[in-house]
């Protein structure tokens, strides 16, 4: 049925490809990744090509994005964290644009797949681990031993800290994935009620106004979620990077 709320997450092959026995087909997901990257990069590069001292409207949007992420990173990871600025900026813009593309009807939402969000989260946590050990050596392990804790409690605290560190990539990826997935399913379910009720005659049409209202409200909410989840992903990335740069609490 066209009303199946799960169906929007189906991946369909546009160009079937296979290499070394693994499937690397160009799918609808790949298409929207390309669109996300293409549109964002084209916008950011073309609007700033004039290098206007007094920015045009579109150039100010690019500048606002830049300053928004730069302030985010600087406030949580300090000026040392600015070496990770291109990564945080790319993550923020990629997730935001992927989420916003998903808001178009019939469009595929790249971030509604756990493998994508998990890959991005593992990229961040992997970078935190590699950079943390590279910069601080074994001093990075101080991250798990907060200062000023009574000696008796240290084993317990370390255990909790390690668990919380391990759960970071899970929470980071699941938060984004689940928010986008749940939002899109809810939207689809409510939108599906409208044609179903409309078929029941006059009473049904009047009754369909309720899910219609919900759908409009949910659409607005989903736009908020689209931005908010990109923001949350970016700010958590900043905070984890801060741990790698300054491991002692």
């Amino acid at each position: 049925m066209a009303n199946d709320p799960i169906q929007q997450f189906e991946i369909s092959k546009i160009l079937p490809l296979e290499a070394l026995g693994t499937d690397i087909s160009f799918t609808n997901s790949s298409l929207f990744m390309v669109l996300t990257v293409g549109v964002s990069a084209a916008f950011l590069i073309m609007t700033t090509s004039g290098r206007g001292l007094i920015p045009s409207r579109l150039q100010s949007i690019s500048e606002m994005c830049y300053e928004f992420v730069a302030d985010l990173l600087r406030s949580s990871a300090g000026s040392e964290g600015m070496k990770f600025f291109p990564l945080v900026f790319s993550l923020f813009v990629f997730i935001l644009m992927a989420n916003l593309f998903g808001m178009f009807p019939y469009f595929f939402t790249v971030t509604s797949h756990i493998i994508v969000t998990a890959a991005l989260a593992l990229l961040v946590i992997g970078l935190v681990l590699v950079y943390g050990f590279w910069k601080n050596g074994f001093g990075f392990l101080k991250l798990f031993v907060p200062s000023g804790v009574p000696a008796v409690l240290i084993p317990l605290i370390v255990l909790i800290e390690v668990m919380s560190f391990i759960s970071r990539p899970i929470s980071l990826s699941v938060r984004l994935f689940a928010n986008v997935l749940a939002g899109h399913i809810t939207l689809k379910v409510f939108a599906g009620f409208i044609p179903m009720l409309s078929k029941l005659g006059f009473v049904g049409v009047v009754g369909a106004l309720l899910p219609l209202g919900f759908t409009v409200a949910l659409t607005a909410l989903e736009f908020l979620v689209a931005f908010l989840q990109a923001y949350v992903f970016a700010i958590l990335t900043c905070m984890y990077l801060n741990d790698a740069i300054h491991p002692s609490h």
Binding site: I11, D23, S29, S30, M33, T36, S40, P86
Partner: peptide, 25 residues
């Protein structure tokens, strides 16, 4: 679908990171 998604994510996100860090930012 994981292998295809991971590959294309790596390609597109890698390209995006490159464009951002070398040109836009």
């Amino acid at each position: 679908t994981f292998s295809s998604q991971l590959l294309w994510l790596a390609i597109t996100f890698g390209l995006f990171y490159f464009l951002m860090s070398k040109i836009a930012l």
